[in-house]
Amino acid sequence: MNPNISIYKFLIILLVLAGMITVISCETYNQEEYEELVIVEAYAIANDRLPDVRIHTTTPAEDFFDPSETAITGANVQVVLLDESDQSEKVFDYFFSPAGNGIYIAGNRSHRMQANRTYRLDIDFNDRPEVIRAYTTIPDQLTVLNEIADSVVYQSEEQLEIVIPQPQNNAQQQVYVFSIISDEPFAENLTPFYLANFEDENIELDDVLVNSSGLINEGNFDINPDGTITLRFPWIGVAFYGENRIITGLVDRNLSDLVRSQEVQLGGSTLSPGEIPNLIYNIEGGIGIFGSMSTDTVSTRILRP
């Protein structure tokens, strides 16, 4: 056989084989269609009263977003305090708030959320099939142990330090967050970094009235010989000179999962640009957050350098 004809025959066979492989192996991985989901939003604070529960729905991504249009009425909401064997110890019924906006409030206004106790949120609907359940364990009560300086100089060597006891539940490392609320939120009081952003119209004053450090793992801080933890408030959180209240928070796993996954969703991590995951919700039957935290507040005056 003419060698060139042999080659052509082999080439044709190979090309047909390759074409068959490409056709047969066509994988279908299609985009799903939008489905409306129920969203629950509730934040419990240790020693605070039962949290409000907001229930609403998602909106298609390309539609106009109006939170007031997504509120759900007609939900049956309960928060249950569980005992050590996860049995119901006390049930708190909720009612739709006259203020609307999908908010349900507890009938019991005297109960205080107990640190280190687990609560369960149960929701079902008169006119929807969803059944939603979520759990949160309130973190240990946070108490600032040290005497806070009346004033600190911005970006000085003496950083604002907060000493707290190590939490009882230290099986996993804890996650903290600092918030700072200015009592003198005027433009002329802005610190340089925030002033530059304000002048560039990247931010408005309202955006930094309450400024947060973001979630910070316990591992970032020193454990003292006496078992306490020293937290240093980072200067990046200070938006205003003058009188400020600093709130130290200890968050539960649900809040930590939600917030860190939300911060990653649209970039800034190792995900490729355009690769968007869902958040970590820890909710059964829906999405959202039933989280908790404990807090303590101190005050100081931030002085200009």
Binding site: Y34, A61, Q262, P277, M293
Partner: peptide, 25 residues
């Protein structure tokens, strides 16, 4: 993104957190 929502009441800040809901990544 298929859907969107917003978490407005995260206790330690006053910013609304915009969230997408997605299907297959």
């Amino acid at each position: 993104p298929l859907g969107r929502t917003q978490f407005s009441n995260v206790p330690w800040d006053n910013a609304s957190r915009n969230v997408f809901v997605v299907g297959n990544v």
